[in-house]
Lab assay of single mutants.
Amino acid sequence: VTLFVALYDYEARTEDDLSFHKGEKFQILNSSEGDWWEARSLTTGETGYIPSNYVAPV
């Protein structure tokens, strides 16, 4: 499993987005949709879409 870490804070803009804080780690569930990836936060357990340019591989 490839994990990603948040480089910046992000505040959700829609109900499908996932808010997160810098340093939070994610498991990517689906990265085939372009710039927005479906991810699960390893901190909160919540699932939603995150901007791929806000995260980097651990």
Rank of each mutant, 00 (worst) to 15 (best):
L18Q: 03
T44W: 03
V58Y: 14
L42E: 07
F4G: 04
D9W: 04
G34K: 15
R13F: 09
V1F: 13
G34V: 14
E24V: 04
W36G: 03
Q27H: 13
T2V: 12
F20C: 02
D35F: 15
G45V: 01
E38A: 08
S41H: 07
F26P: 00
L18N: 01
F20W: 01
L42Q: 07
L7Q: 05
W37I: 06
K25A: 07
H21P: 05
T44M: 02
E15V: 12
Y10S: 02
W36N: 05
W36M: 13
N53I: 10
L29W: 06
E38T: 13
L7F: 03
D17L: 10
P57R: 08
E24F: 04
F26I: 05
D17F: 15
Y54E: 01
I50A: 01
D16C: 14
K22Q: 08
D9M: 04
A6P: 00
W37K: 03
D9R: 05
H21F: 14
I28K: 04
S41T: 04
E15G: 14
K22A: 11
R13E: 12
V1C: 14
G48Q: 01
V5Y: 13
N53H: 12
R40N: 04
A12H: 06
E46N: 13
E24N: 06
E33H: 15
D9K: 05
G45T: 04
R13C: 13
T2F: 12
D9C: 08
V58E: 10
Y49W: 14
E11P: 05
T47Y: 08
S19Y: 03
W37V: 06
T47F: 07
F4Q: 03
S52W: 10
G34Q: 14
V55E: 00
G45N: 09
A39F: 03
S52L: 05
D9I: 03
K25R: 13
P51H: 08
E11S: 11
G34A: 14
L7H: 03
V55P: 01
H21K: 15
R13V: 13
S41K: 14
D17S: 15
T14C: 14
G48C: 01
S19D: 04
Y8M: 09
G45H: 08
P51E: 02
K22T: 08
E38H: 14
V55R: 00
P57Q: 09
G48P: 00
I50N: 00
E15H: 11
A12I: 02
R40L: 12
D9A: 07
E38S: 10
R40Y: 12
L42V: 09
S19C: 05
V58H: 09
H21R: 14
I28D: 00
Q27G: 03
V5W: 07
P51Q: 06
Q27L: 14
T14P: 03
E24H: 07
Y54V: 04
T47M: 09
D16P: 04
A12D: 02
F26V: 03
G48S: 01
Y54T: 04
S52C: 10
W37L: 08
T2M: 13
D17Y: 14
V58W: 15
E15P: 14
G45W: 08
V55D: 00
I28R: 04
A39M: 05
L18A: 02
E33P: 11
W36R: 15
W36A: 06
S19E: 04
L18T: 02
L29H: 05
E11Q: 12
I50H: 00
T44H: 04
A6D: 00
E11R: 10
V55L: 11
P51G: 03
T44A: 03
G34E: 13
L3M: 10
Y10I: 01
A56V: 13
G48A: 02
W36K: 12
V5M: 09
N30A: 08
Y49N: 08
Y49T: 08
P51K: 06
D17I: 12
N53G: 11
A56P: 01
K22P: 04
A56G: 08
I50K: 00
P51R: 08
R13N: 09
A39T: 02
K25M: 15
V55F: 09
V1N: 14
T2Y: 12
T44Y: 03
D17M: 13
E11H: 12
D16L: 14
Y54N: 03
S52R: 13
D9N: 09
Y8V: 07
F20A: 02
G48L: 02
G23Q: 03
Y49M: 14
E15S: 13
L42S: 04
V5D: 02
V5P: 00
H21A: 10
D35I: 11
S31D: 14
A39C: 06
Y8S: 07
P57I: 08
T47N: 05
S32I: 11
W37Q: 03
Y54I: 05
T43V: 10
L7S: 03
H21Q: 12
S32E: 12
G45I: 02
V5I: 13
N53K: 13
E11L: 11
N53V: 09
K22L: 06
T14W: 15
S32N: 11
D9T: 07
P57W: 06
N53L: 10
E38V: 15
S19R: 04
Q27Y: 15
E15A: 14
L29S: 05
E11V: 14
A12S: 12
L42F: 07
V1L: 14
S52M: 09
E15F: 11
I28H: 01
F4W: 15
W37G: 01
Y8F: 11
Y10C: 04
E46I: 11
W37H: 03
S31G: 10
V58A: 09
L3F: 11
G23A: 03
A39Q: 00
E46C: 11
G23M: 03
Y10P: 00
S41Y: 02
P57L: 09
E33D: 15
L3A: 07
Q27M: 14
G34P: 14
T44D: 03
L42G: 03
S31H: 11
A39D: 00
S19G: 07
K22V: 10
H21V: 15
Y8C: 10
S31F: 15
L3S: 06
T47P: 02
T2Q: 13
E11A: 11
E11C: 12
L3W: 11
D16V: 14
A12Q: 06
D35S: 11
E33L: 14
F26C: 01
K22W: 05
V5L: 06
Y54R: 06
L18W: 04
W37D: 01
Y54L: 10
L29R: 05
W36L: 09
Q27R: 09
G45K: 06
A39Y: 02
Y54C: 06
W36D: 03
S52F: 08
I50P: 00
G23S: 04
V5E: 08
L42P: 02
D35W: 12
S41P: 01
F4R: 03
W36E: 04
K25W: 14
E38K: 12
E15I: 11
E33A: 14
E33I: 12
V55W: 01
K25N: 07
Y8R: 09
G34R: 13
T44K: 04
A6Q: 00
T14K: 14
T43P: 02
T44C: 04
E15M: 12
D17A: 15
P57T: 06
F26T: 00
N30M: 07
G34D: 12
K22S: 07
E38D: 04
H21W: 10
H21D: 06
T43L: 12
E46P: 01
T43H: 11
F4L: 04
A6H: 00
T47S: 10
I28W: 02
Y10N: 03
Y10H: 06
Y10G: 02
A12C: 05
Y54G: 05
W37C: 03
T43G: 07
T2E: 11
L3Q: 08
S41E: 03
R40G: 02
V5H: 05
A56Q: 11
P57M: 09
F26G: 00
R13P: 08
L3R: 05
D9P: 07
G45M: 08
G34N: 12
G23E: 04
E15N: 12
A39V: 11
D17W: 11
V58Q: 07
T2G: 11
A6T: 03
L18V: 05
L7E: 04
G45Y: 07
G23N: 06
I28G: 01
N30Q: 08
A39W: 01
A12E: 03
S19I: 02
L7K: 05
F4S: 03
S52V: 08
